[in-house]
């Protein structure tokens, strides 16, 4: 089931990338990773809006979104996190900072933290809002841990 989910998400990311890429001549690696980030954001918004009380809690929808997060963190992103595609080379097309590819980059460790936090989130996503809210914290923390050193200001 998880394999099917992962494959489906891969198709979604790839097709989203193609749709976005079709609109301009952007760097394909940047386009692909932006699509990946948008899917993180979309699934987090489903869970986060429930946690905030903006939408009613729906156990099935919460579980699906959390499972998507897990699947997204297990996909290989090696094809689009490429040296030479940072804002140093591509300017305003991307906010990715060169430091992410530095020798002392912690991006892989942060990615592992995000994966672990997503697994923990998925384990409780069907258990109600009282469980989902706290489990979102480490996921957001991992996102911030990467955005803090490796994403430029707008």
């Amino acid at each position: 089931m998880k394999l099917i989910l992962s494959l489906a998400l891969t198709v979604v990311v790839a097709s989203t990338s193609m749709v976005i890429a079709g609109g301009h001549d952007g760097n394909p690696a940047v386009t692909a990773r932006k699509a990946h980030m948008q899917l993180y954001q979309h699934n987090l918004s489903i869970l986060g809006n429930m946690a905030r009380g903006n939408t009613d809690y729906d156990a099935a929808a919460a579980q699906a979104a959390a499972d998507n997060m897990v699947a997204l963190t297990t996909m290989s992103q090696a094809g689009y996190w490429l040296p030479g595609t940072t804002n140093a080379e591509l300017g305003d097309e991307t906010r990715t900072l060169p430091a992410i590819f530095g020798a002392d980059s912690t991006a892989r460790t942060i990615g592992a933290d995000l994966a672990a936090a997503s697994v923990a989130l998925a384990a409780v996503a069907s258990d109600g809002l009282d469980a989902v809210g706290p489990a979102l914290g480490p996921v957001g923390g991992a996102c911030t841990a990467c955005h803090r050193p490796y994403r430029a200001r707008n």
């Binding site: 954001q41 918004s45 979102l136 914290g137 957001g140 996102c143 990467c146 955005h147 994403r151 200001r153």
Partner: peptide
């Protein structure tokens, strides 16, 4: 006001992007 308070509490924007850069230390 709720969006701002939630952002300051969690680092999530209303569309669930997460805070980065120097603002992360503020959060």
């Amino acid at each position: 006001e709720g969006d701002i308070a939630y952002y300051l509490e969690t680092g999530f924007t209303p569309d669930f992007d997460s805070v980065g850069g120097s603002m992360a230390a503020v959060i």
